[in-house]
């Protein structure tokens, strides 16, 4: 039970990171491998705000999220849109996007390494026990989960209950049909990419409250987020949230029952199972 709750608490943050990625991949059709760097940058941002200016990471979200939005928007408009425009086929775009975002991954990772060095960082925020169902958990994990849940619900509300959110979902389903009903697909793609960046940045800021982070961990988190997105079905918000919770629980299970060094192996085991049995995602219908 303790493992289950710890896993779900971790999964809440994973969900935010994956939601950011699924917006970028599902709507803007860019598999953003540099997504993990947004996350790491947000971790450092939250740390800086907390240690240098005594700003709580929760209030820090109000600064970090808009920064994530603007930075990702600029990356899309400046670097990725030219690739979208020159791509002949979806496959060609995929290869280009993967290589370009790889470049960004290395560039940002290298830059953060230069600035912050290779050591591990953490800070003490709400590091007090919190009683839940007879067991005690760190309050920062519980608060991070609650914040992640609130942000997810707000995002779901925006996507499913507003006019612009519906337009975003329409582009995710079929960009050509969306264009026919006068949706500005290029703008929606840009907005979704930027919004995805903002959501991921929120995930990073929350993660930093309870997780020891370092400059080069973006890659691993990006892989986890990608696997969650594929598990949940590309562009599927509910799927991503559920898949993130499942992954959080399984990782915690493996780490506490088998070996902490095998968490990625667990993630991959899950990934292979999905690929073999439900390549369309947990909730995807039959293809066609």
């Amino acid at each position: 039970m303790e493992i289950l709750i710890t896993g779900v608490l971790l999964g809440g943050t994973y969900a935010l990171i994956a939601l950011g990625l699924t917006l970028q991949y599902g709507v803007a059709r860019i598999m953003n491998l540099a997504n993990g760097e947004t996350l790491v940058a947000a971790c450092f941002g939250a740390w800086l705000l907390f240690t240098a200016a005594q700003i709580s990471p929760l209030w820090g979200l109000l600064i970090i999220a808009p920064l994530g939005f603007v930075a990702n928007g600029l990356i899309y408009a400046g670097l990725l849109r030219p690739l979208v425009r020159r791509a002949v086929t979806q496959g060609a775009l995929e290869v280009d996007a993967i290589l370009a975002t790889f470049g960004l991954l290395f560039l940002f990772e290298g830059a953060m390494h230069l600035i912050f060095g290779g050591s591990f960082f953490n800070y003490q925020f709400l590091a007090v026990p919190f009683e839940l169902l007879g067991e005690s958990y760190a309050l920062n994990r519980v608060v991070a989960f609650a914040a992640a849940a609130i942000i997810s619900v707000l995002l779901a509300f925006f996507l499913y209950r507003t006019r612009f959110g519906t337009a975003i979902r329409a582009v995710a389903v079929d960009p050509d049909a969306a264009r026919l009903v006068a949706i500005d697909v290029e703008f929606v793609a840009l907005f979704a990419f930027a919004l995805g960046g903002a959501i991921t940045a929120c995930g990073g800021a929350l993660l930093s409250t309870f997780y020891t982070f370092e400059a080069s961990m973006g890659g691993i988190f990006m892989i986890k987020a990608l696997i969650i997105v594929i598990m949940g079905g590309v562009g599927d918000v509910r799927g991503a949230v559920l898949a993130a919770l499942i992954l959080g629980v399984i990782e915690t299970l493996v780490a506490s029952l088998v070996d902490p060094g095998l968490t990625l192996t667990a993630t991959y085991g899950l990934f292979v199972t999905i690929l073999l049995f439900r390549p369309q995602g947990l909730f995807g219908g039959a293809a066609g």
């Binding site: 670097l79 290589l99 370009a100 790889f102 470049g103 960004l104 991954l105 290395f106 560039l107 940002f108 990772e109 290298g110 830059a111 390494h113 230069l114």
Partner: peptide, 9 residues
């Protein structure tokens, strides 16, 4: 890493 990144781009 920075240079590898630039080379990719």
């Amino acid at each position: 890493n920075v240079i590898i990144g630039l080379a990719f781009l």
